[in-house]
Simulated assay, not measured.
Amino acid sequence: MGKLVVREVIGTTSASTPDKAKPFLDELCDAIDSKRTTSVDFSGLSTITTAFLNNSIGRLYSLYDVKKLNEYIKLESSSLTPFQREKVQMVMQNTKQKLSQEEIKGEID
């Protein structure tokens, strides 16, 4: 299993802006496309914003199905503070809910 250290990918301890999310998203997509199981390590990050998470982890849900994400991407929850873990979970739940609502709307329209 490969390991992806977010701090090393973005080159800073502050995962705060959407533009910082792009290289992280690219690495995640590369791992999935290469069918390489990857563990994501968030250690050493002082800040993780929802803007960063929405433009990285949140975007994955619009690019890949949940089964594929669960198969290849493993988030190391132990590398997150409790507050950071809540943000990650919130972004994942909101993204899943938004996608489900769009699917329902598409079936109705």
Score class of each variant (00 low, 15 high):
residue 72 Y to F: 15
residue 19 D to K: 10
residue 14 S to Y: 06
residue 48 I to L: 12
residue 44 G to N: 02
residue 78 S to E: 13
residue 29 C to H: 07
residue 77 S to E: 12
residue 24 F to E: 03
residue 21 A to K: 03
residue 4 L to N: 03
residue 92 M to P: 02
residue 26 D to Y: 11
residue 85 R to A: 11
residue 13 T to W: 01
residue 69 L to N: 13
residue 52 F to N: 03
residue 10 I to M: 08
residue 32 I to F: 09
residue 97 Q to V: 13
residue 4 L to E: 05
residue 16 S to I: 06
residue 47 T to S: 03
residue 71 E to I: 08
residue 9 V to S: 03
residue 6 V to C: 01
residue 20 K to C: 02
residue 15 A to G: 03
residue 8 E to N: 06
residue 45 L to V: 02
residue 50 T to I: 11
residue 97 Q to G: 12
residue 68 K to I: 15
residue 26 D to L: 14
residue 35 K to S: 08
residue 36 R to H: 08
residue 36 R to F: 07
residue 66 V to L: 15
residue 63 L to I: 13
residue 10 I to Q: 06
residue 57 I to T: 00
residue 44 G to V: 02
residue 65 D to P: 09
residue 37 T to D: 14
residue 12 T to A: 03
residue 33 D to A: 06
residue 98 K to N: 11
residue 8 E to G: 00
residue 56 S to Q: 09
residue 99 L to A: 05
residue 43 S to K: 14
residue 91 V to D: 01
residue 65 D to W: 13
residue 70 N to C: 13
residue 31 A to E: 05
residue 81 T to M: 07
residue 14 S to A: 02
residue 32 I to G: 04
residue 25 L to E: 09
residue 18 P to K: 07
residue 74 K to Y: 08
residue 48 I to A: 01
residue 30 D to M: 14
residue 25 L to W: 13
residue 15 A to T: 00
residue 8 E to Q: 10
residue 31 A to R: 09
residue 33 D to R: 13
residue 86 E to S: 12
residue 105 K to M: 11
residue 58 G to F: 04
residue 21 A to R: 04
residue 56 S to M: 10
residue 58 G to L: 04
residue 79 S to F: 01
residue 51 A to Y: 03
residue 60 L to P: 01
residue 57 I to V: 05
residue 66 V to T: 15
residue 42 F to K: 00
residue 24 F to Y: 12
residue 26 D to V: 12
residue 71 E to V: 10
residue 14 S to G: 00
residue 24 F to R: 01
residue 23 P to N: 02
residue 55 N to H: 14
residue 30 D to C: 14
residue 8 E to D: 12
residue 3 K to Y: 08
residue 100 S to G: 07
residue 56 S to C: 11
residue 82 P to L: 07
residue 74 K to N: 12
residue 39 S to H: 09
residue 64 Y to I: 14
residue 84 Q to K: 05
residue 21 A to D: 05
residue 88 V to H: 04
residue 23 P to G: 03
residue 17 T to R: 07
residue 65 D to A: 09
residue 67 K to N: 13
residue 35 K to C: 07
residue 5 V to F: 08
residue 70 N to A: 12
residue 2 G to S: 15
residue 37 T to N: 12
residue 72 Y to C: 05
residue 47 T to I: 13
residue 7 R to F: 01
residue 69 L to S: 12
residue 37 T to A: 15
residue 96 K to N: 06
residue 3 K to N: 09
residue 79 S to P: 04
residue 29 C to Q: 14
residue 108 I to F: 09
residue 75 L to F: 15
residue 44 G to M: 01
residue 43 S to Q: 13
residue 107 E to S: 14
residue 35 K to D: 05
residue 105 K to N: 09
residue 4 L to Q: 04
residue 75 L to S: 05
residue 16 S to Y: 05
residue 6 V to P: 00
residue 59 R to L: 12
residue 21 A to I: 04
residue 63 L to C: 11
